[in-house]
């Protein structure tokens, strides 16, 4: 993929994270009735059952943005050909693993996994 396409995705996911992150922080503070109330068992369950798919989208954005950012930083550190390839593939694998692991959590909250 062209670097400019990746960076366009980096911009778009960045803006998406800004919006969904503000939503996430709002749910944990004033919209959730204060931090202590927002992290209680019952309110976490109800929030994640209703916004599960929104959080899935948040997870997709974050995974791409963070692991693409890590790749950008890591390829700037050292320039061996093998290292550059390894970094790219390592980031793809680590990103996929993080995404799947996070998706498992969301599926539990949505009641798909029992």
């Amino acid at each position: 993929m062209k670097e400019s396409t990746l960076m366009l995705l980096q911009y778009l996911t960045g803006v998406g994270i800004l919006i969904l992150g503000a939503f996430h922080f709002a749910l944990l503070s004033f919209a959730g009735g204060g931090y202590s109330n927002a992290i209680s068992f019952a309110s976490v369950l109800s929030v994640y059952m209703s916004f599960g798919l929104v959080f899935e989208l948040f997870l997709v954005f974050l995974t791409f943005h963070i692991f693409n950012g890590f790749r950008k930083i890591l390829v700037e550190i050292y320039q061996g050909a093998l290292y550059q390839k390894t970094v790219t593939w390592l980031m793809i694998v680590a990103g996929a693993a993080t995404f799947l692991w996070g998706t498992r959590t969301i599926l539990i909250f949505l009641g798909v996994l029992h």
Binding site: E3, S4, L6, M7, K72, V75, E76, Q79
Partner: peptide, 9 residues
């Protein structure tokens, strides 16, 4: 320039 180690670094 639109490559790895180009403008986006």
């Amino acid at each position: 320039v639109d490559t790895n180690h180009g403008i986006w670094n």
